[in-house]
Amino acid sequence: MIPFDLTYHRPSSISEAVQLFEQIQKQGKTPLYYNGGTEIITLSRLNLVFADAVIDIKHIPECRVLDRKQNELTLGAALSLTTIEEANPFPLLAKAASEVADHTARNQITLGGNVCGQIFYRETVLPLLLADCDVVIAGKSGLRQHSIHEVFDQHIRLEPGEFLVQIKVDPIYTTMPHIHIKRRKQGNVGYPLVTVSMIKKERDLRVAFSGVCPFPFRSQAVEEQLNARHLPIETRIVRALQQLPEPILDDVEGSAEYRLFVLKNILTDMLIALEEG
């Protein structure tokens, strides 16, 4: 139950959506772009989100694109996670998506919603960070396309009135050797204790994390250490983990110490699998 009143808007084009946002804001009200909607509904129950109006972008054609061109894979922000799982255009992303929440919830949770979410795991962003993908963002001045690294730092950095329209992936990344491991406190459903995505580009490993810090991240410093192949795996992992951007999370899912233990094991398995494979 959303304990406040709001109006619901369903624009059919990008420009209409952006205009709506602006108009509503001009009236002194708080608009929110609305995709799958699950997080907005969840957080509003807990008084953590408020909106006077929601602008549903799921019906904008550009947001629904799933297009596999030879040199570019385009994924609309409104694609549900199960759509991505079933179409499987990017196996690592499909795997990461398939570990979020549960299947029924994923029928509703969208790629854009997960990437832009407030709840800090945002696990589908991990493959996107590894694939150096581009993001297409709509705003007042039209569309802009950037490398994800320019706009995603811990969370997506959008200007007011902007929303994520598409993700563009270079298809070479969709066929690289990869591993995605999500470890929970217990069981098969729920938030991660830690989640790690890794791909191997030529000889180099790329790695991104969720559940380690209160934001998902990929770190050059961590990767450098992991790729120092002249050193034993154990040393590389120890050094890599000294490069984490923030102290490891310590919360209801698990203590920092334990997360570190799990992380080390996951990285060991991944390194062995990808370097030998």
Partner: peptide, 13 residues
């Protein structure tokens, strides 16, 4: 035809 949690979707949607 797709299973959806009806507590997580607005009726108007």
């Amino acid at each position: 035809g797709t299973p959806i949690k009806s507590c997580m979707i607005l009726a108007i949607e």
